[in-house]
C-alpha cells in the first residue's frame, strides 16, 4: 500500500523540498505538492506536512498570514477529521496560529537565530509520530529558527504534560521555551508541531539519521509498512 502524503508550500517556505525528499526516501513514494492558494487538498491523503521557512516573510507574526491562507482551511478540516498533520519549524508556527495546537512561538530568549544540532528527549513514544523511538531516548536533530520560544500559560502547560502531549523536549535550554518544550501534540494525537527539523536528519550525510524514525513511525501506523 502506498503512503499518500502532501507537502504544502507557502510563499517563503524553504524546507518544502527537504520535507518532500525525506518523505520520499522513507516511503518510496513522492509526496504530492500543494500550493497555499489551493482551496482543496488531494483526495485520500494519509499525511500532510507543513514545512519550515519564512512564509509571507514572517509578516505580522511568524505563520500568521499562512495560517489564514485558503489551503489552511482544508488542512484544519482534514486535521479535525483525523488526518495526521506534521508541522516543522514555520509549520509549527502555522499550526499554533491556526489554532490546531495550543500556545504560541515567541522570539528566542537569546534574541539570536539558533542554528545547530540539538539533543532532544523523546517524552511520548506512543504517538503516531514517535512510536519508533523509546520513551526517554535522546536524539540529535538540527534546529534553525529565530522564533522557537514555545509559550503557553501554566494551566495549558500542565494540561499538555498531564495528557502526554509533550512529544519532545530540549535536553538543554535552546531558545527559552517554557519547560524546554520542543514539540507538542494535539488532543487527538494526529497533529504534531515541532521546531527541530527531523527531515534534515534522514541520511548519514546529513550528520545523523535520528529524524528518520519519525517518518517511519507515521508510515507504519498509517499503512502498516
Amino acid at each position: 500500500m502506498t503512503f499518500c502524503c502532501a507537502v504544502v508550500t507557502f510563499p517563503g517556505s524553504n524546507c518544502d523540498r527537504d520535507m518532500a525528499v525525506a518523505l520520499e526516501k522513507v516511503s518510496g513514494t513522492a509526496p504530492l505538492r500543494v500550493w497555499h492558494g489551493d482551496a482543496d487538498l488531494p483526495e485520500g491523503l494519509d499525511f500532510i506536512a507543513l514545512p519550515g521557512g519564512f512564509s509571507y516573510g514572517d509578516y505580522l507574526r511568524c505563520g500568521a498570514i499562512a495560517s489564514r491562507s485558503p489551503i489552511m482551511r482544508a488542512v484544519v478540516e482534514a486535521a479535525n477529521r483525523g488526518v495526521p498533520v506534521l508541522g516543522v519549524c514555520n509549520g509549527f508556527q502555522v499550526l499554533t496560529e491556526s489554532g490546531l495546537l495550543p500556545g504560541a512561538l515567541l522570539r528566542n530568549s537569546v534574541i539570536r537565530f539558533v542554528c545547530r544540532d540539538v539533543k532532544l528527549r523523546v517524552e511520548n513514544a506512543q504517538s503516531l509520530f514517535t512510536s519508533g523511538y523509546e520513551a526517554g531516548q535522546e536524539i540529535l536533530i538540527p534546529v534553525a529558527h529565530h522564533d522557537g520560544n514555545y509559550f503557553a500559560d501554566e494551566a495549558t502547560l500542565d494540561r499538555l504534560e498531564g495528557e502526554g502531549r509533550v512529544a519532545f523536549r530540549y535536553a538543554e535550554d535552546v531558545n527559552g521555551s517554557s519547560r524546554q518544550i520542543a514539540g507538542v501534540l494535539n488532543g487527538a494525537g494526529n497533529v504534531l508541531g515541532m521546531m527541530p527539523h527531523p527531515e534534515r536528519a534522514i541520511e548519514a550525510t546529513h550528520g545523523g539519521t535520528d529524524g528518520r524514525a519519525l517518518f517511519e513511525s507515521a508510515m507504519k501506523a498509517l499503512v502498516g509498512a
Binding site: 505580522l60 507574526r61 489564514r68 495550543p102 500556545g103 504560541a104 509559550f151 503557553a152
Partner: peptide
C-alpha cells in the same frame, strides 16, 4: 481577534 493580534500572547 482573527488576525491582527494573537490572543494567546
Amino acid at each position: 481577534r482573527k488576525l491582527l493580534a494573537n490572543m494567546v500572547i
